[in-house]
Design a protein around this nucleic acid. Structure first.
Lengths: 105, 105
DNA sequence: CCATTATTTCGAAAAAAATCGAAATAATGG
DNA sequence: CCATTATTTCGATTTTTTTCGAAATAATGG
């Protein structure tokens, strides 16, 4: 898992609107949420939402599945797990939840 | 730990150059690295580096300590640990390293 | 105080991102 | 095929970010 995958994912989540959006999907769980529901909840124009969704989808953090008329969006946990794994393995040290390396060359 | 702290941190790390920079600091461990050393390693203009460093420092992910002429930069692990904690607690679900909630709220 | 090394601020230009209305495309039911 | 609902693409504007040279500031030793 290299930085060329990780950095865009961090950037995707590093926007208040998209982080909020992503968290709505996490809370929605396996059922996911249709784009339209997200739009109501976030209360933003459809075209703006579509733009942000595209960024999340393009980094692999969100998946979409069409169910007839509606597009269901879901948080894609494997991507998030890999992201957390990267941060834990390669960006943490010392105290706390992360591992305890001190200066892995 | 709310999104007003987390989103800027994710944004700070969501830039290939800054992620690289941050990882250099992680690898440097507790000793940290002077700005000048970072500049040599990353091979970018001082003013550009200063700009990126400022962003990392302003989000709390990096600290700086002056040692006479030189400014030592260090990864600030408590911030990273809190960030990983946030992602684990509020952005993960199902399988993998993260916790196993299914549809909190 | 001056020279030197280290780092930041300033200012300006280029690149990228965010915003959103209007028009276009998708999918369905009738 | 048409009407309807759902979502995206287009196009234009504004805002933010990135970039970097030149000048300014900081800290030290002499």
């Amino acid at each position: 898992m290299n930085t060329e995958i990780i950095a865009p994912q961090l950037e995707a989540l590093g926007n208040a609107r998209r982080l909020d959006l992503y968290r709505h999907l996490v809370r929605a769980g396996a059922a996911g949420l249709p784009v339209g529901s997200l739009q109501e909840r976030l209360n933003i124009p459809a075209s703006t939402l579509s733009h942000h969704l595209k960024r999340l989808v393009s980094t692999g953090l969100v998946t979409q599945e069409r169910q007839s008329t509606v597009l269901i969006c879901r948080a894609h946990y494997p991507a998030m797990n890999a992201l957390v794994g990267f941060l834990t393995d390669e960006c943490c040290a010392d105290e706390g939840r992360c591992d305890t390396r001190e200066s892995a060359a």
